[in-house]
Design a protein around this nucleic acid. Structure first.
Ligand SMILES: [Mg+2]
Ligand SMILES: [Mg+2]
Lengths: 422, 422
DNA sequence: CCGCCGAGG
DNA sequence: CCCTCGGCG
């Protein structure tokens, strides 16, 4: 295995010192989140050049962080998800496909970096392909801009797109995408943050998802460390909104919260009854950091500053008992470079949460009647509803996880969805 | 229950608003690390005054964080540990007592705040009483000063005291205390940090503890957030020293590391083979923060800034297999105010780790012969050995945990020590 | 959208 | 021994 790669052969005299090798192993382990044993494995056949070892590692582990399998040798031809991301899928009219996982709900959140105009359309297409491949019922997007929204609307004809933009689509804004086949849009509203200096707001959508009444919320909270004060205020608005939502609805609030753990702690942590879905699914370290300049070079900082932060989060508040959704898996998406462009879809990874619909909750009908109680509550709000019109044809890519190998880590991708009453 | 306390009765019109009550509950829950249900319990009979509720909570939970029992109504007369802390125990000559837990090793680390001259002797006596009550085999101390060292030497005649101070005991320094009955001092040395601007260093002691050959290390790493760079460098020296220690020794490195999690992460986390004992024992949240201006007002900041950090840590590197010590429990000490003084023993909580000696390791003899291999290794070092001479008489306080009540949390104090071969 | 650092509270 | 903030790499 090692001598087969002639480029990997080196004179003994070319080897770095033992101390240097150890340091490079540490570096590799740090960037990959693995250990120095694995580092040595990758470095020893690559002249102990860290960059080459990292390239090899991530090339062999395109889904690292995503579903934790290790060393699958695959390329776009073998990998349905990679294929999905790269293919120019045709635009088209609404597609009806059988729901192979009727008791599973998938919710994504992703800051798709519309502020970076470079490769915007190609990057947005990669996002679109991931949405289709993962068959998410709900997508919460941030940093949507007019030039990416148009691409989304052209290609995601199976989805209703509710924009959080207010002032005639200038700048960047949020959007919530609802799969038409599996959801019903009940109503929506935007909540302004009056003291935002960055035009941020909160988008709230009431929707019934596979029969589960939900409130879906997204926001792109005030950016940068300096604006922690304003950010915490905005977060409080979102969290209060979650607490105050109808108890008949299951509430999800996700987005680019730009949050540091200390900030959350300083406001007393999450209120009772609200949980972080990443934590709730086991705090998998592979899915922790959603903004990571060690791995993601879209920002082209030339390695001047490297850091990792968990900016993108998803919070859950259950409806009154019995709960209807159980978080079962949390992963990152967008970890592969867009072919040809050689950049990632965004400077953020997307987050993708999988939920099981609990027994007696879902009925597979997208529409669940509002109770008299909630009808009362909701008529107090001045919400408008903007349905989407459908277009041309579309063939969603096949989903499915890539196969792992014997050295795989503890778990590999979401558990299979089960019919609760089986 | 509520009407029995006449001071607790209030006119309904005096009650704060519901929103205000909720806010105060949040505040209480935040400071105590409990929840708002408990907060309401404590607030409702105390006119919703947060300060009174907190006083009541901590008065009833003097050991909160320490062994997690809740609401034991106790005072110094009933509580052996509190009694130990407050009593002026007589100085005396070395005491021999039967070792009731021969397969248990207890190691403490505590910054005892010698830089605060107020109540220094009383505070130091409280530290001494805790050391005696907990019957620690090893204590790692930081911020020892001449005026506290003298008190330690007078009262802790059962311990050898190895000082990390170099320049004729000016300023503040570290010390390692070894229980004479249970340990043998093999040798020690201090390692300077050349770029420290605060006179910090590393104290390394080789000792055999209940038959287990150990390397014990302590340090008070460069303080304040601004000095993260120097602090990380110092930490690296300590961690390297742990890695390089004889594989026949079990290595513990503990102290006031002044560390922020991000800093540890930025140097790639702990090296393989080194674990954080707090994490290893389950990351109990009650024992997480060792410096906490919400609960500890020794710094008299008048509540201007409140924060919590995990400055004090203990790292473990096992000897070559089979391992000899298993970490079983980690708790905080010094959580009770010193009677009369009404201040805590230090602005830091102490940390106390409990280990089980694994089967076939300990032989209850303090002295374990050095192997030929290690004798070779150690003769390369220019270590000096400074034995202590014993003095007057002493009566160590009885230890033992306070009894909990039915509402106790998941666990209550360290598990009973078992003879490995029972 | 970063961390480091120093000033001010 | 804290935090926030602003300047700068
Ligand atoms: Mg951005
Ligand atoms: Mg101090």
């Amino acid at each position: 295995m090692s001598s087969g790669d002639s480029e990997g052969e080196v004179q003994e005299s070319d080897l770095p010192s033992a101390a240097e090798c150890e340091e490079r192993c540490q570096k590799f382990a740090e960037v990959t989140g693995t250990d120095t044993a694995l580092a040595m494995f990758f470095l020893q056949d690559r002249q102990w050049i860290v960059a080459r070892a990292l390239d090899a590692f991530f090339a062999q582990n395109p889904g690292y962080g995503e579903s934790m399998q290790e060393y699958p040798t695959l390329n776009a031809a073998e990998d349905p998800l990679a294929a999905a991301q790269s293919m120019g899928s045709g635009e088209g009219s609404e597609t009806k496909v059988p729901d192979v996982q009727p008791h599973r709900v998938r919710v994504m959140s992703w800051n798709i970096d519309g502020l970076d105009t470079a490769n915007l359309k190609q990057r947005t297409r990669a996002v679109i392909n991931t949405i289709k491949a993962e068959k998410v019922e709900v997508a919460l997007l941030q940093e949507v801009v007019a030039n990416s929204e148009s691409v989304l609307r052209e290609s995601l004809t199976d989805y209703k797109i509710i924009s959080g933009g207010t002032s005639s689509k200038e700048g960047y804004y949020t959007a919530i995408l609802l799969h038409k086949q599996h959801t019903h849009l009940d109503d929506f509203e935007t909540v302004p943050y009056f003291s935002s200096t960055m035009g941020r707001n909160l988008l709230v959508v009431n929707s019934t998802v596979k029969g589960v009444p939900m409130t879906l919320m997204t926001s792109h909270l005030e950016s940068t460390k300096s604006h922690a004060g304003e950010r915490k205020r905005q977060l409080g608005i979102g969290l209060n909104r979650m607490k105050d939502a109808s108890t008949e609805r299951t509430v999800l609030f996700g987005g680019d919260l730009n949050l540091r753990d200390k900030e959350l702690e300083s406001i007393g942590g999450l209120p009772e009854g609200i949980v972080d879905v990443w934590e709730e699914t086991g705090s998998r370290k592979e899915a922790r950091y959603t903004w990571d300049t060690y791995r993601n070079d879209n920002l082209a900082t030339d390695g001047k500053w490297r850091t990792r932060l968990r900016f993108d989060r998803l919070y859950l508040r259950q409806c009154s008992p019995p709960a209807k959704l159980k978080p079962v898996y949390f992963e990152l998406v967008g970890l592969q470079r867009v072919p040809d462009v050689h950049r990632f879809p965004s400077d953020h990874w997307g987050i993708l949460a999988h939920f099981d619909i609990l027994s007696g909750s879902g009925d597979s009908r997208p529409f669940g009647a509002l109770s008299a109680k909630e009808a009362e509550e909701s008529q107090a709000k001045s919400s408008s509803l903007k349905p989407e019109n459908s277009k041309s044809s579309d063939a969603p890519a096949s989903s499915g996880k890539k196969s792992g190998n014997p050295e795989a880590q503890p778990s590999e991708g979401p558990p299979p969805a089960k019919r609760p009453k089986d």
